[in-house]
Design a protein around this nucleic acid. Structure first.
Ligand SMILES: [Mn+2]
Ligand SMILES: [Mn+2]
Ligand SMILES: [Zn+2]
Ligand SMILES: [Zn+2]
Lengths: 138, 138
DNA sequence: AAAAGACATGCAACCGATTTGCAAAGTTTA
DNA sequence: TAAACTTTGCAAATCGGTTGCATGTCTTTT
């Protein structure tokens, strides 16, 4: 993705397009699986972990990325689709491969509805499937 | 639950019923919501966190309890139902209340099936709903 | 019963992921 | 330009979870 496109994503979410943010956004856009803070840190020649951390926080707050709790103990991050508001209706299932350890957004798989007990109010959901991904299932 | 019942639960899962284990199991049986290590620690007058930790690990390995990753950063534990083998089929949905911070087992709500993309193999699942529990929804 | 073995417990210290504090650098505003 | 605000970098703290190791307890063997 070119600089113009990256900048416009940030602008659309009212996040100032600093050099650092453009770099991080670009890197996120290149990933095929969701990335942890450490994953991203490794892919930079030199970057401050805390700045990266805060950049991700900012992105998350402005719905540029969403964080995924796949149960591994380290949060993963992936780009939100354009116009995503991270509402329960927008949410998709995530898949964590136990072999290659990658976590994928199954963006076409919406989380099935569960009707809760009486009076419970639903605000958020998290659904993670674990097993073998297509590459590892052989 | 009386000592005899607690002992038989442990025996049924081949876990030696030590004084400590009986105490912990009794405490778990009294909870209406899933408990974290710290939750349990607070409820004892005096207990070593590591011993408590290892007791929970042992219980989990022997399927006396299951652990719940509700996304709060601290694992919660709750008793398994009798004869539970923690298979994908046995699994139920969990609900975390964002107000009172309690996490509940919705034992009657099985996780709905999602048919994964071609070649993906499912081994485990985790589904957590978040929002307001019946007490907090008012 | 004494010795040996096996398992359980307690305390200290470590670990990885995340978060905070604070000062320096960079930007925007007046 | 000077003040005000935001972003960045480095150090250090926090937090939940985990490991190492010595001690205690209970069981089995001699
Ligand atoms: Mn996703
Ligand atoms: Mn449960
Ligand atoms: Zn894989
Ligand atoms: Zn509640």
């Amino acid at each position: 993705m070119n600089d113009k496109q990256l900048t416009s994503i940030l602008n659309a979410r009212s996040v100032k397009p600093t050099a650092m943010r453009l770099l991080v956004l670009d890197m996120l856009a290149q990933q095929e699986a969701a990335s942890s803070l450490s994953d991203l840190e490794e892919q930079f020649d030199k970057v401050d972990k805390v700045t990266l951390y805060r950049t991700l926080k900012t992105f998350e707050q402005h719905k540029i990325i969403h964080s995924i709790d796949d149960g591994t103990g380290s949060a993963k991050y992936a780009l939100c689709s354009e116009g995503c508001e991270c509402n329960p209706g927008d949410l998709h299932v995530h898949f964590h491969c136990q072999v290659c350890k990658r976590t994928f957004c199954l963006t076409d798989y919406t989380i099935p509805a569960v009707n809760l007990p009486h009076k419970f109010v639903l605000k958020e959901m998290n659904m993670v499937m674990k097993g073998l991904c297509e590459d590892c299932a052989g």
